[in-house]
Deep mutational scan, measured.
Amino acid sequence: MNLTVNGKPSTVDGAESLNVTELLSALKVAQAEYVTVELNGEVLEREAFDATTVKDGDAVEFLY
Rank of each mutant, 00 (worst) to 15 (best):
M1I: 12
M1Q: 03
M1G: 03
N2E: 07
N2L: 10
N2H: 13
N2T: 13
N2A: 09
L3S: 02
L3N: 01
L3R: 01
L3Y: 02
T4C: 14
T4H: 07
T4Y: 08
T4I: 13
V5R: 00
V5N: 01
V5A: 03
N6K: 02
N6E: 03
N6V: 02
G7T: 03
G7Q: 05
G7I: 05
G7H: 06
K8C: 15
K8N: 08
K8L: 11
K8T: 09
S10F: 15
S10Q: 15
S10R: 15
T11P: 06
T11W: 15
V12S: 02
V12F: 11
V12D: 02
V12Q: 03
V12H: 05
D13F: 15
D13A: 14
D13M: 14
G14T: 09
G14W: 14
G14V: 09
G14L: 08
A15S: 09
A15P: 09
A15L: 10
A15M: 11
E16W: 14
E16M: 14
E16H: 13
E16V: 14
S17A: 09
S17Q: 10
S17M: 11
S17N: 08
S17E: 09
S17W: 11
L18T: 04
L18G: 01
L18M: 14
L18D: 01
L18R: 05
L18C: 10
L18H: 03
N19C: 08
N19R: 06
N19D: 03
N19A: 05
V20L: 07
V20D: 00
V20A: 01
V20K: 00
T21S: 09
T21G: 05
E22N: 08
E22D: 10
E22K: 08
E22H: 06
E22F: 04
E22A: 09
E22R: 07
L23V: 04
L23C: 04
L23E: 00
L23G: 00
L24C: 05
L24G: 00
L24Y: 00
L24P: 00
L24T: 01
S25Y: 11
S25T: 12
S25C: 13
S25E: 12
A26N: 06
A26I: 14
A26M: 12
L27E: 00
L27W: 02
L27D: 02
K28T: 05
K28P: 03
K28R: 11
V29S: 03
V29M: 07
V29A: 04
V29P: 05
A30P: 14
A30Y: 12
A30C: 15
A30F: 12
Q31G: 14
Q31C: 15
A32P: 13
A32W: 13
A32N: 10
A32M: 11
E33G: 09
E33Y: 07
E33A: 11
E33N: 10
E33M: 10
Y34I: 12
Y34K: 09
V35Q: 04
V35G: 02
V35D: 04
V35N: 03
T36A: 07
T36F: 08
T36D: 06
V37E: 00
V37P: 00
V37H: 00
V37Y: 00
E38R: 15
E38W: 15
E38Y: 15
L39M: 03
L39F: 05
L39Y: 04
L39E: 00
G41Q: 04
G41S: 04
E42R: 14
E42Y: 08
E42K: 14
E42N: 11
V43I: 12
V43H: 08
V43F: 08
V43K: 12
L44E: 00
L44Y: 04
L44F: 04
L44H: 02
E45L: 13
E45Q: 12
E45N: 12
E45F: 09
R46F: 07
R46E: 04
R46P: 08
R46K: 07
R46T: 06
E47A: 12
E47L: 08
E47C: 12
A48V: 09
A48I: 07
A48K: 12
A48E: 10
A48N: 12
F49V: 02
F49C: 04
F49N: 01
F49I: 02
D50I: 06
D50S: 10
D50P: 08
D50L: 07
D50V: 06
D50Q: 08
D50W: 07
D50A: 08
A51W: 14
A51Q: 13
A51Y: 14
T52C: 06
T52K: 06
T52E: 03
T53A: 09
T53E: 10
T53M: 14
V54P: 01
V54K: 01
V54F: 03
V54E: 00
V54H: 01
K55D: 03
K55M: 07
K55S: 07
K55G: 05
K55P: 01
D56S: 12
D56A: 09
D56Q: 07
G57D: 04
G57R: 05
G57M: 05
G57N: 05
D58E: 03
D58Y: 03
D58L: 03
D58K: 01
D58N: 01
A59V: 15
A59N: 13
A59G: 06
V60Q: 01
V60D: 04
V60W: 03
V60F: 09
V60Y: 04
E61I: 12
F62Q: 02
F62D: 05
F62S: 02
F62M: 06
L63A: 12
L63Q: 13
L63V: 12
L63N: 12
L63C: 15
L63P: 05
L63Y: 15
L63I: 14
Y64A: 09
Y64H: 11
